[in-house]
């Protein structure tokens, strides 16, 4: 999976540089998030700007990251969802679970509060 990882202070931004997040690549994302969490990076932002399509496996990987971050007293937040991806979160009611921000800067700033 094509990922771009960037540090903003103690926040790690995972940029998914893929058009699709599905059963083919979601396991890679899950592993990457777990690696970051296990090495002490517990404040994560997953940026979905390039993602046009997400299926239930992709949602499951993000849920896994969210649960693992929360279990370590951290947080996983999402940024830059395209409308069709946002609609998937609404369909599965996960928009009530995740903190979702319009861009990376707002997501990162939310950790300061």
């Amino acid at each position: 999976m094509n990922l771009q990882i960037e540090n903003l202070g103690d926040i790690v931004v995972i940029g998914l540089r893929e058009e699709r997040l599905d059963a083919h690549n979601s396991t890679d994302l899950k592993s990457q998030m777990l690696n970051l969490l296990e090495t002490g990076h517990t404040h994560l932002v997953v940026d979905l700007q390039d993602v046009r399509f997400v299926d239930s496996s992709g949602l499951g990987a993000l849920v896994s990251g969210f649960k693992n971050a929360t279990a370590r007293n951290g947080a996983l937040k999402l940024s830059s969802l395209q409308p069709q991806v946002q609609s998937m979160f609404e369909l599965t009611r996960l928009h009530r679970v995740f903190e979702i921000f319009p861009n990376i800067d707002l997501a990162a700033a939310s950790f300061q509060g």
Partner: peptide
Amino acid sequence: CQDEHNLPEHGRGLFIIRT
């Protein structure tokens, strides 16, 4: 079920298809 509190990692595929 689509339980917001239990948060299962799997099982949403058939829910999406049926919807």
